[in-house]
Nucleic acid binder design. Structure first.
Length: 882
DNA sequence: GCCTCGGAAGTC
DNA sequence: CTGGGACTTCCGAGGC
């Protein structure tokens, strides 16, 4: 029976098989259909290949003589096919040939053999799934038509036939097209590449499973587990108890039967998944297929060949982590709620309790902590039911966190705009997203695709953005202007690309020449660069999504507005990633000159504007890379803060209007083709203590708010009392009331000295690295030159000693106490109150008073009150008595 | 006790 | 191995 459906590709892989006597490679695409069915597509019809060219060719002669030898190279299939003239990385256009390879596992050896015999091999490091999307110009959302091979219980009724519901018939048919058996999905289709076409993006109804383990501190074994599945908003809970092997088997059954696209949990990357792996190896060292019943979470058939170890790789059934990096679970996407929360919220502390409190401050049920995780064995023995409840709650929270952060929708949108599978968008890096767009266009426009540079290449750093000196003190009425997408605009307007870089030293008046190093790029009329063309396309598409968003809002179509907003945001993220990738030294389409030229133009542009503004007699207060802060021509007598009395309001409104007009006029004056200077915000006052990247401003347009950049307030390694005191201080300073600021600060320092401050206000937290030493069975902090010299490493060690989880990279909270006896270093006590309760430690009064005085004193020094002055303590209330 | 330096983290 | 550099701050170590 044939079938036709719109689906979103979650993930893909490929497997080699024999079609009669012909070696073939089938591509597996794990998808979620628009209607919610999990669908596996087995796609045939694409053969793996690489491209070759003769590096000695200058492009004028015909085929090189040794082309005849290529087909006899080991693992090469058939004769090379000419693919026409292509521009090589060295700037020469020469003939290229496509060489088919027997299967994807042989690409490495063929690449080596061909380059040993004098060929330049290109397009030779692209994953085969990605090759499918590139060659067919597909994104994650596709329309697929093919033959139904298997239908499970949840498959659409209309697709079910006697054949497709009979496992033995289905399995035989699946193997005929290269599949490995019955995959744990709703339905399986066999497709030809002609049966795939791109579809408009739609929100796929993904299924997410969250899980959590409670484990013994004494023996590491699993006490109980829980899983919760979210299927289109409907949740099913699975509390699991029993012997350890039974727990793991049950959890694996849940994964295989519920068949989720995403697998989440809190800290699964660093705790639950490694623990599962360790326990599965401990329980079943006999055979891999036996272990698969414990941890066969991969979306592949449960059979011997999928369980079998490959060359330095476990079978596809098992979750796998390569070189201590992200986990892969074949056909699914591991998405750690901790990592998502950390990236989007940047919480000061990172425990699940703390993050829940941040997101749902009023919901006590979500924050309830009635189990002492550091005494898990005792808790489990005394009250297993409560422990199980606690475990279930900790699986529900990650789902709520992902919902709140819209993590899944964001990944899908990013996949959609970068034209990759959702797993690449979710778990891979910027260079892969960009690869997807750049290689696609290179193929279409006849540019050879060089391989990614191998190995660490030490290289001089390129110069970055320009940062203007900032004077200490308050400035009234300031406008802030920003270049819109500065780096992308520069790349577009100067046609900066590895395909346009002039490499042969020639000079032509049409060239675009960089301001200082005089790097040359050919004009866009002669040849539009690959990257400039892509960026222009992205800018246009962002404008289109924004327009569609506005239209949807107007029509009250919330779902469409949400989708368009996700898409425009994803385009922004993607555009901003381009510069970084092209300024790196490993990316395939880079040259050291590219990154350097971009920043050169950026510095040149911004400095040019600064000097013209200054020549006109205005004060440039600050500038960083793409922004400029200018004092508006407002009368010095005008009020900075909005007056209480209506009568005085006029002067304030007038000053504001003058500022707005000034901002508009600057934007208009300095905007030119390819460099749009936007009037971003108007400030009624601006303050810095005189350090770059540190300032505050009172925004009066387009919203009213306080803007704080760089200061401790924004840093997670500050402590709450410092952040809140500094924020209060800034309010007063921006109001012009510096005396009140100093007085208030002294009051806070006095209270700290008295010891009457809640220690929760004094928790400092910093991330701490480390790796598990499985030989010594302990944590290893040797990444640090002197681990015990670092307060946060000491705090991490205390956490571990207390029986609490430590996860590398996670923030560790601590309070500074008086130094331990005979020690000059700070005293440190890990902050465990969030997790285990108990009494907080006694803080070091002088340390905290000193740190407040130092940080706040830096600021008040702008008014003549230094650190020592603040520490003197006595409040100057008399100042207010008059 | 004062100063400088380097390691490390964090932010823009 | 798998986006960049500029900049500030904190802490401990070590010299004098």
């Amino acid at each position: 029976m044939s079938w036709d459906d719109e689906v979103c590709i979650v993930s893909g892989d490929n497997r080699a098989w024999q079609q009669g006597d012909r070696p073939s490679t089938v591509i597996e695409l794990w998808c979620r259909s628009r209607a919610g069915h999990s669908t596996l597509l087995l796609v045939n019809g694409l053969r793996p290949y690489v491209e070759i060219s003769d590096p000695k060719s200058d492009g004028s002669s015909g085929d090189p003589e040794f082309l005849g030898n290529v087909s006899s190279t080991r693992d090469v299939q058939g004769e090379p096919e000419p693919t026409g003239m292509k521009l090589s990385q060295d700037g020469v256009t020469r003939p290229h040939y496509r060489v088919y390879v027997k299967d994807t596992t042989k690409v490495r050896s063929v690449r080596k053999a061909l380059s040993d015999s004098g060929w330049r091999v290109t397009s030779a490091d692209i994953l085969f799934v990605q090759r499918l999307l590139l060659d067919l110009d597909l994104g994650p959302h596709i329309r697929a038509s093919g033959e139904v091979l298997w239908t499970g219980d949840r498959a659409p009724e209309a697709a079910k036939t006697a054949e497709t519901t009979d496992p033995s018939v289905a399995e035989a048919r699946i193997r005929e097209v290269g599949g490995s058996g019955i995959y744990p999905v709703d339905m399986i289709l066999s497709c030809d590449i002609d049966g795939l076409e791109r579809a408009e993006p739609f929100p796929a109804p993904f299924v997410t499973l969250s899980f959590d383990l409670e484990t013994s501190i004494a023996t590491n074994h699993i006490l109980c587990a829980a899983a919760v599945v979210d299927r289109a908003g409907e949740r099913t809970e699975y509390p699991i108890v029993g012997e350890e092997n039974e727990i793991m088997e049950r959890l694996t059954q849940v994964v295989r039967s519920e068949d989720p696209d995403f697998i989440t949990g809190y800290n699964i990357d660093n705790f639950d998944l490694p623990r599962m792996e360790e326990r599965s190896e401990f329980i079943d060292t006999e055979s891999e297929i036996a272990r698969a019943s414990l941890l066969g979470w991969g979306r592949v058939p449960l059979n011997e060949s999928e369980a079998k170890k490959g060359w330095r790789k476990p079978g596809r059934l098992f979750p796998n982590r390569e070189q201590n990096r992200v986990w892969t679970i074949r056909g699914r996407i591991p998405l750690d709620a901790w990592w998502q929360a950390r990236q989007t919220l940047r919480p000061q502390r990172e425990s699940l309790r703390y993050v829940s409190r941040l997101l749902w401050p009023d919901d006590e049920e979500m924050q309830k902590m009635d189990i002492d995780a550091s005494k898990m064995d005792e808790e489990w023995a005394a009250r297993p039911d409560e422990v199980l409840d606690y475990c279930v709650r900790d699986t529900v929270l990650p789902l709520d966190i992902l919902d709140r952060l819209q993590s899944v929708a964001r990944k899908e949108a990013l996949a959609s705009v970068s034209l990759t599978t959702v797993d690449i968008a979710a778990t891979s890096t910027t260079s892969r997203w960009i690869d997807s767009l750049v290689i696609r266009m290179a193929d279409r426009r006849g540019f050879a695709v060089p391989n990614t540079n191998q190995g660490p290449r030490k290289q001089d750093k390129i110069a970055g953005g320009y940062v203007h000196e900032v004077e200490p003190g308050v400035e009234p009425w300031v406008v802030v202007l920003d270049f819109k997408s500065m780096y992308p605009s520069i790349m577009i307007s100067n046609n900066i690309c590895s395909t346009t870089l002039v490499r042969d030293g020639s000079e032509d008046s049409s060239h675009s020449v960089s301001p200082t190093t005089k790097t040359r790029y050919i004009s866009r009329e002669e040849r539009l660069g690959l990257v400039p063309q892509l960026l222009e396309g992205l800018m246009d598409s962002r404008d289109r999504h924004k327009a569609a968003l506005a239209k949807a809002n107007e029509e009250g179509d919330e779902a469409e507005a949400f989708l368009q907003d996700q898409l425009q945001y994803a385009v922004k993220i993607l555009m901003n990633s381009f510069y970084g990738v092209f300024a790196s030294n490993f990316y395939r389409f880079t040259h050291p000159s590219l990154g350097a030229s971009i920043t050169e133009w950026a510095r040149h542009n911004i400095k040019g504007i600064i000097s013209r503004v200054e020549t006109d007699g205005y004060d440039v207060v600050y500038s960083d890379t793409d922004s400029i802060f200018v004092r508006a021509p407002v009368d010095s007598g005008a009020p900075m803060n909005r007056p209480e009395e209506d009568a005085d309001l006029e002067a304030w409104e007038g000053a504001k209007q003058t500022t707005l007009d000034f901002g508009d006029s600057l934007a208009e004056r300095f905007t030119r083709e390819g460099a749009e200077l936007e009037f971003e915000t108007a400030l009624s006052s601006f303050f810095s203590h005189g350090a770059k990247k540190r300032y505050v401003g009172r925004v009066v347009w387009p919203r009213e708010e306080m803007m704080i950049r760089g200061y401790e307030v924004r840093r997670t390694d500050s402590f709450q009392l410092l952040s809140s005191t500094m924020t209060d201080m800034f309010e007063m300073i921006l109001d012009g009331d510096t005396l009140a600021a100093v007085d208030m600060t002294k009051g806070v320092i006095d209270r700290v000295r008295e010891g009457s401050v809640d220690p929760a206000q004094l928790v400092i937290s910093r991330s701490c690295k480390g790796k598990w030493d499985s030989k010594k069975n302990e944590w290893d902090f040797s990444v640090y030159a002197n681990p015990d010299g670092l307060p946060y490493v000491r705090a991490a060690k205390q956490r571990i000693a207390a029986g609490l989880q430590f996860t590398p990279g996670m923030k560790v909270g601590y309070v500074v106490t008086e130094p331990d006896e005979g020690d000059k270093k700070l005293g440190v006590r890990a902050w465990l109150v969030d997790e285990v309760g108990g009494d907080p430690p006694e803080y070091d009064k002088e340390y905290y008073a000193g740190r407040l005085a130092k940080s706040l004193g830096r600021i008040t020094e702008a008014f003549g009150w230094d650190e020592k002055n603040l520490l003197k303590g006595t409040r100057q209330s008399s100042l207010f008595d008059f």
